[in-house]
Every structure is written in C-alpha cells, then in structure tokens.
Design a protein around this nucleic acid. Sequence first.
DNA 1: CCAGCCGA
DNA 2: TCGGCTGGG
Length: 329
Amino acid sequence: MGVKFRDIISPESIKFEQLESKIVALDAANIIYQFLSSIRQVDGTPLMDQNGNITSHFSGILYRTSSLIEKGIRPVYIFDGTSDILKKGTQDKRREVKEESQKKMEKALEEGRIEDARKYAVRTSRMSPKIVEGSKKLLELLGVPYIQARGEGEAQASYMVENGDAWCVGSQDYDCILFGATKMVRNLTITGGKSNLELIDLKKVLENLGITREQLVDIAILVGTDFNLGVKGIGAKTGLKLIKEHENIFNVINKLDIEMEVEPEILRNIFLKHEVEPDYSLKWKSPDTEGVVRFLCGDHDFSEVRVLSALDKFKKIDNKQKSLKDWFG
DNA sequence: CCAGCCGA
DNA sequence: TCGGCTGGG
C-alpha cells in the first residue's frame, strides 16, 4: 500500500545510465509482491511448477536481477523482519480482502468470466514464509546479497541510503522517504527498452514543500500509513496545508478537535526512531550456474535455455567491469 | 513482470 | 527495427 503522497510529490524523470555502478537497496517485500500479483496467466493463475508450487516470484527475481546487473546496477534485497504490532491491524484487513477475493475468483472462474477471475486472483497474492525462503535461496545462488532487517525492510533500506552504503532505495511506496531515505527510485522496470524511472530526492521534496521531515511524517500520519488509518477527509494536499498552517500534528489535532485512533507520538517514532540492523556486508559474487539450473530447472521446471540466457547477463558485466574486486568479492 | 517471436 | 502480443512454470 504505502502512504498516498502522489499529489504533493513531483518526481524527477531519470534514465538507467544515472544508476550505473550504483548500489540500489530493493524493498524485497514490495518487489516480490509485485511479481506475485502481476506474473500470471490470462485467467489469473500464477506460474507454478508440476508440484503446484508458485514460481512467479522466481521468474521475476531472475529476470529483474539479471537486467539490473546487465545495466551495471548493484542490487541488494532487503527483507522484512518482524513487523510492527500496529501493522497487524492493516494486515488483518488485507487478509480479509484476500479471502473474499479468493471466493470471488473461484466463482468467476467457474462461470467462465476470465477477466473477472484475473482481477480477483491478483488480489489474492500473499507473501508466505515459503515464498520468502525460496526468494532468499535464489538470490544466494545468483550471488546477489540480501539483508534481513530487524523491523520494516523499508526502514533498513532507508538507513543504508542515509548511511551512504546504498545510493537509493528501489520501491514503489513513498514510505521510504518517511523512514529517511535521501533518495528513492520508482518504476525500476525494463519493458521493451522503455523505462519510466522516477527519482525522488528527499531534500528537494522538503525544499519544494517548505517543510521538515518531521512535518512530512506528520502529514503522512494524517493521510494514513501502513500503521494507521488516517483522518477521514484529509488527503496529501489538505494534510500539507494543515501542517504548514499549524506547524505540527499536535496543533492540528487540538485546533480541529480530531480524534486519532493511534497516538501520533507512537507513529512518529516508527518512522523517526526505528530499530535497524547496523551490521551488514554487501558482496556480489558470480552466480552459481549449476546451482541455479538445479534449483530453477530441476526443482521448479524452468526452461534451461531461458535460465542460461538470463545468467549470461551476469557474465557481460564480468567482462565489462574493470575492477572486479568492487563487484565480486 | 519479462523474453521472444511475428508482422509491418 | 520496433510495438504488440503470447507464453512462461
């Protein structure tokens, strides 16, 4: 989901060349969820191996990672640790929606309404522990580093950017700038050579809006985040206006006599004082070709020709890159 | 979502 | 050579 900030943030359009040789911290949950919901057949069925295991995310990770590496980008995937207790509320609601969508999908499928079936199927996507474990296994075989966050993956990724260990966070959700990522990119996809890359620079965003990060967080709390519903009737634009007018969320609440379902101070702390994993290392290795083939083709029925040609993209860098030590430890 | 093919 | 479409597992 993420905070709905589109109305107050104008991203810069950039090209892939500007990401060359840069480290991009990818929000694994965000990216894998995208794969699970979009890599599907016409009727909405995800890709599966003969044993019925979902494989959409493997396809996504393989092709996305190889394309990024081919473009000279160094990806690192950041996985969520334990999520905040407050998030459980929104998670429960999502589970309900998913269960309902599952029923609607089955009915649509029975009645031959293919487009409807797909529509509902997309909403059933879930990040099970099995999906997470499989994704980590594949990344290990590909020689691409991943980091296990203590809390929110986006918070960890943002910390790494703030710390100078990564150039930007790659995610669709604006939440990373709340967590303090100085730079984030959206639409990190590569369809048909065309791209629609968006760069969001936190410093510029704050300058343009004429506010501080604390105030940006306050706006988010009014609008609604993954941790609270927000105030009915307040969107990004109204939120911005109110916070600029009254300086902070406490004044807004007092002046407008608003009741918050969660203490703003608690929400502020989630974004401003979160726990991170300070001990991590980033190392890219050559992919274990045999291992990848055994895993994807042997265990999960991928075509060997396709897998090998994706792995070829890792080698191109191998030849192009002068200082291999930067790349492969 | 991405790769590969096909027709213009 | 490129946009559109299909199949991938």
